Simulated assay, not measured.
Amino acid sequence: MAIYDKRAEVIQTNKMGWLTIWNAALEAVNKPVLDLSDRNTSQVWRIELRLGSKQLRNRFEMRNWQDLRDMIGDAFTDALTRLRYCIPTTDRSRARWPTHELWQQFDSVIGMDLLQNCAGVLPSDVIQANRAAKMRELDAQLVGLFITRAAISDVTGPSFDDFMEGHVEALLRLVPEHPTPITDRIAKARAKYRLT
């Protein structure tokens, strides 16, 4: 995280039009424009909050532009819970230093402006919920298939449990008959459902 006083940079690079943009934004909300000859009325601050691969890929599972649009607000909000810009005091414990007003404004802007870019949950929680739902769905399909297979085999209701137990052994005998090894097939299924 870095906080910069942009005044000197603005004076040097006003050819790019930032002063024009900022003054237009100030005029739009009926505030006085920046006067670069007066430091006290012309301070422009930029706060950079950078997120690395640990936050983007590992913690929030952002892999493409749509993921970024959907969850960047969550990632920034999460980062703001772990750091802050403070006003130093004589207190030896930095945890008791008051949060700087600029940081409070920044936190508020992130919370409001990126609200539409928040999912509200960690992707790992979503993956876990999806995994549980997919397992329930597959189990229901397996039961349905076993019932159909039992009906075709003239199995009655009271002997269904014995049929299921005995039929698992028949299914295990079919596994080696497939041309693709079981480890490869499991890996392919894992990749399809993003279980890792």
Rank of each mutant, 00 (worst) to 15 (best):
V33N: 03
D74Q: 03
R92E: 11
T77F: 11
I186A: 09
D125I: 13
P32V: 00
P176C: 04
D35N: 14
F60T: 00
V33P: 06
N58F: 10
L19C: 07
T20W: 05
L80P: 00
I87A: 00
V143N: 10
L114Q: 02
M1A: 08
F146E: 09
N30V: 04
D91M: 00
S93F: 02
V44G: 02
G52C: 05
C118K: 11
M112G: 06
H100M: 01
M164Y: 04
P98M: 03
D125E: 14
L102A: 01
S42W: 00
D91P: 05
T13D: 08
A170T: 09
A187D: 15
L51W: 08
Y193I: 14
R94C: 07
T13P: 06
N117C: 15
D107W: 13
I110W: 05
V33W: 03
L114W: 08
I110N: 05
M164N: 05
L26E: 09
T180A: 13
E61D: 14
Q66D: 15
M62S: 08
T90A: 10
A129W: 15
D107A: 14
Y4M: 07
S153T: 05
M1C: 12
D154T: 14
L122P: 02
L56P: 02
T41Y: 02
R46C: 09
D78P: 10
R59T: 10
F160H: 05
D91H: 08
L172V: 14
T13G: 13
M62Y: 00
R84K: 12
L171R: 05
E9D: 11
L142V: 13
V44A: 07
A189K: 03
W22R: 04
Y4S: 12
L171C: 12
K31A: 14
I186R: 06
L102G: 13
A79R: 02
A133M: 05
D35I: 02
R94E: 05
D162A: 14
Q43K: 13
D5H: 11
E101I: 14
R50G: 12
L172R: 11
D113G: 12
E169K: 08
H178M: 10
T90K: 13
W65E: 15
A132T: 08
L56W: 05
V109A: 12
E48D: 11
E27D: 14
T148R: 15
V29S: 03
E169H: 13
